[in-house]
């Protein structure tokens, strides 16, 4: 049971947007499709919803092929980036729309709308129109409309990207909690790796229409399958050093900056430091290479100070300089 993409390809007028995607999503999982804009993640979600056709390959929901099943019969719920609330309906009518379409009687409908509204704490808004609501409130209404019935899966297309930073973190937590309580399979599209790491049971990293890696957030972070994944996940990004026949990667937290020389430490110069509040990013020059190290907040160093770097060698990732594939598996 669950959702499966089998060799799914989508082309738009010759341009390949999703390239031979195979993905098996288990029932109840929270999957995040992560990648830069234009990587095909939204198209993947829209194909699952039936809003885009599949050029080749098959999509299965609960074991049944759905390629030719129209959107309205796929029994999915979707939260759009724009929220797509119906502007001419009240909030109660918006939330109740999926039930109205399913011809539930009025009393039943009202009861379910109330229950969901209470769950998301938007009961006081039920008589208003969408334009009278703030961004955060609209977000909740869109969510309420999705969870008012029990669909086979929730699809979410960057649902938090229009919220301010504080609200985004808050809603992120609530989403995670909600999914935990409902236990419904969720597929969530984002370009924000923080959302991917915090929400997902498994993350599918995509780039240029191709699946790069599909694994748990921890595996994605600690054992990136290739250079793209290593670079895209983690903030600040992984450092790369080109060597003969190999590209080495080391995460900023695995570089320790020392003020005195030590055995095996590499000499470097401080280029600039950025105090982030709870930590400091130290930008360093080592010969022609630029590295970033993550240090505690109390780290202080003047520009151009000579320092020494202790690199946790066991944490070094090695990538093929041509293909970018991780060499860890090969070794």
């Amino acid at each position: 049971m669950g959702i499966e993409f089998r060799n799914v390809t989508k082309t738009f007028g010759g341009a390949c947007v999703v390239d031979d995607l195979s993905l098996e999503i288990r029932d109840g999982e929270f999957i995040v499709l992560l990648g830069p804009s234009g990587c095909g993640k939204t198209t993947t979600l829209r194909m699952l919803a039936g809003l885009e056709s599949v050029t080749s390959g098959d999509i299965f929901i609960d074991g049944g092929p759905v390629n030719d099943v129209p959107t309205q019969h796929r029994d999915l719920a979707m939260v759009f980036q724009s929220y797509a609330l119906y502007p001419h309906m009240t909030i109660a009518e918006n939330i109740g729309y999926p039930l109205r379409v399913r011809k539930l009687d009025k009393a039943d409908r009202a009861a379910r709308v109330r229950r969901v509204a209470a769950m998301l704490e938007i009961e006081s808004l039920l008589d208003r129109k969408p334009r009278q609501l703030s961004g955060g409130e609209r977000q909740r209404v869109a969510l309420a409309r999705a969870i008012v019935r029990e669909p086979r899966a929730y699809l979410m297309d960057e649902p938090l990207s229009n919220l301010d930073a504080r609200l985004r973190v808050q809603m992120r937590g609530e989403l995670k909690r909600l999914q935990h309580e409902l236990g419904t399979t969720t597929i969530y599209v984002t370009h924000d790796q923080a959302e991917a790491m915090t929400l997902a049971s498994r993350v599918a990293v995509m780039n240029k229409g191709r699946l790069q890696q599909f694994d748990t957030p921890l595996k994605i972070y600690n054992e990136p399958a290739n250079r793209f994944v290593a670079e895209f996940v983690g903030s600040p990004s992984m450092n790369f050093i080109e060597r003969e026949h190999v590209t080495e990667g080391i995460r900023p937290e695995h570089i320790q900056v020392l003020s005195t020389p030590e055995d095996g430490a590499i000499e470097a110069r401080v280029y600039v430091t950025e105090l982030m509040g709870n930590e400091t990013f130290v930008f360093l020059s080592v010969g022609d290479n630029r590295l970033i190290a993550r240090e505690p907040a109390d780290f202080r160093a003047d520009v151009d100070t000579k320092v020494w770097l202790r690199i946790a060698t066991e944490k070094i990732h090695r990538f093929d300089p041509v293909t970018g594939e991780s060499q860890k598996h090969i070794k």
Partner: peptide, 18 residues
């Protein structure tokens, strides 16, 4: 008119005509 609204209606289970 933004397509999102109709697409939302379709996902919510409505037909094209609906």
């Amino acid at each position: 008119l933004p397509r999102d609204l109709e697409e939302a209606a379709l996902v919510d289970g409505d037909s094209r005509l609906g």
